[in-house]
């Protein structure tokens, strides 16, 4: 059982988060405050909110796990995942924020409904797809947190889940995006500081960076190549499709893209892409190198990984356990993982709350609903989403890793084409957006299942689904009547990022 220092450190962190929630709850007066933080986010809060949202608990364990298993060919995820932050800000954020200043969108569904002149069908389809992928992602997050808490405290799964869920649900429910954004500031700083300290210790413990690489080359030359030869998993063509999936898929994920609506001032988009990319890029490189160090430590018999299917996800935990001989320091790592998981789950829960209360209840079921009622429903849905997720995570589906990849793949094939075509192509029509979104969703399911159960495809499955979605968008758009010029001008549609001066 954990000692008193460990319990104290984790408790202090949890109380700090609930304290932020209490402070934020005083600032929440209406739905706009709750869902977009009154559009008040400044530079560092926004940048670290984006880092915290994209960096999840699974990425913390999974990045080093993948490095441990496949070596250097997997470093491409380090380039493309942080790049999704920059992609989201530049290709979606700048224009969406400029339109929102005039229209006051609360969710991205507001934009899609406006731009495609489809107040019911497209909004409903988009919100339902968004809620489904957010749930899949959420269950994966809670499983990551359970792995770490069970390892640290040697407590049963249900207790670990209840602790984690309770804390994140309290501050998210009472404080909305105010709490989520300011908690992300603290959580991202904990994450960055923690990884900067922990990863070098593990690498040093394994004999230093040069030794680790020489050792990897002697184990298997493929471990130190930038990609693998034909016939292996990470071939160059697969890596490109995988990289694009990660970059664009994460950029248009509902819990990531909605952050741009909460920004206070467009001037912050000047340096936010660079800072978001660099901060998260450095964190991911260090985690990956810690995974490489794990290859040395396991081969030299310093520790053996548990005999489970996802054994590589434990490599960073065991690395810390061996490289740092004091239990109180492990609890700091537990707080790092808690911070990474919470900064993603809180945003996901709030996104589900927003899509349900705003897009489905307020905009479709009861347009005359008073603001207080919408706010209350948001809060109820946040709590319900936490409960449902916790029940699902108690008996995690066997195909969890597959489901998480499926979630990102579905995000990409459902949202990328309607969003990009909507923002930049004046000829894209509402009917085409509905067909493109529906076909993207369905074909992602088909190609994903085919890839998983029948045979491996040469490119990542989502690549084919996006292609279907894109072809549908072009053909149906050209066959249907365009949206009115008035709407296209209101939504600043055209081949530009910065809006031309009027």
């Amino acid at each position: 059982m954990a000692d008193i220092t460990t319990i104290a450190i984790v408790t202090i962190y949890c109380l700090l988060m609930i304290g932020i929630g209490g402070w934020a709850s005083k600032k929440v007066k209406n739905t706009e405050d709750y869902l977009v933080a009154g559009r008040s986010l400044g530079f560092w809060v926004f940048v670290l909110l984006m880092v915290g949202t994209v960096c999840s608990g699974m990425s913390l364990l999974g990045v080093s796990g993948l490095g441990f298993k496949f070596g250097w060919p997997t470093i491409w995820e380090q380039i493309f995942v942080p790049l999704s932050i920059a992609f989201c800000i530049i290709f979606f954020g700048v224009k969406l924020h400029a339109i929102t200043r005039e229209t006051g969108y609360i969710t991205v569904q507001d934009y899609l409904a406006h731009r495609y002149d489809s107040p019911m069908t497209l909004r409903t389809l988009s919100a339902i797809a968004g809620i489904i992928v957010s749930f899949v992602y959420l269950v994966g997050q809670y499983t990551a947190i359970a792995i770490v808490l069970m390892w640290l405290f040697e407590i049963p799964l249900w207790l670990a889940l209840i602790i984690a869920t309770l804390v994140v649900t309290i501050y998210t429910t009472i404080g909305g995006l105010y709490a989520v954004a300011w908690a992300a500031l603290i959580q991202s700083l904990i994450l960055i500081g923690g990884v900067l300290i922990m990863a070098p210790i593990i690498i040093f413990y394994a004999g230093g960076f040069t030794h680790v690489n020489e050792f990897m080359a002697s184990v298997d030359p493929n471990l130190v190549q930038p990609w693998m030869p034909g016939g292996m998993v990470f071939t160059p063509s697969y890596l490109v499709s995988f990289g694009i999936l990660l970059m664009i898929g994460l950029a248009c994920a509902p819990h990531v893209i909605n952050n741009v609506l909460a920004v206070k001032d467009a001037r912050l988009f000047k340096w936010a892409p660079l800072l978001g990319f660099l901060i998260y890029g450095v964190v991911m490189f260090l985690l990956k190198f810690a995974g490489f160090a794990g290859i040395v430590l396991v081969k030299e018999g310093v520790f053996t990984l548990p005999d489970v299917a996802n054994a590589q996800d434990f490599v960073i935990l065991y690395g810390i356990q061996n490289a740092i001989p004091h239990i109180a320091l492990w609890s700091i790592f537990a707080v790092i993982v808690l911070a990474a998981v919470m900064s993603t789950t809180d945003r996901l829960m709030l996104t589900i709350g927003a899509m349900f209360s705003w897009d489905i209840y307020k905009k479709i079921i009861r347009p005359d609903a008073p603001d207080k009622q919408v706010l209350l429903i948001s809060k109820v849905v946040v709590v319900l989403s936490a409960l449902v997720t916790m029940i699902l995570a108690l008996n995690p589906p066997e195909m969890l890793a597959f489901l998480i990849w499926m979630g990102i793949g579905i995000m990409l094939s459902t949202f990328a084409v309607p969003l990009l075509a909507g923002l930049y192509w004046r000829r894209a029509t509402g009917t085409a957006a509905i067909v493109s979104m529906a076909l993207g969703l369905i074909s992602a399911g088909i190609f994903g299942a085919y890839y998983q159960y029948i045979e491996k495809l040469p490119l990542h499955f989502s690549f084919y689904a996006v292609l279907v979605s894109l072809i549908a968008m072009i053909i149906v758009s050209l066959a249907t009547e365009p949206v009115s010029e008035k709407i296209l001008d209101e939504t600043k549609t055209g081949w530009f990022i910065r809006c031309p001066e009027k």
């Binding site: 380090q78 380039i79 790049l83 920059a86 530049i90 400029a98 467009a266 988009f269 000047k270 340096w271 892409p273 660079l274 990319f277 660099l278 890029g281 910065r498 809006c499 001066e501």
Partner: peptide, 17 residues
């Protein structure tokens, strides 16, 4: 990594409503 950093620096300097 370096190429992307340069591109994003470029974006920052030329980012102008």
């Amino acid at each position: 990594m370096i190429i992307i950093t340069l591109l994003l620096l470029f974006w920052g300097f030329f980012y102008q409503n």
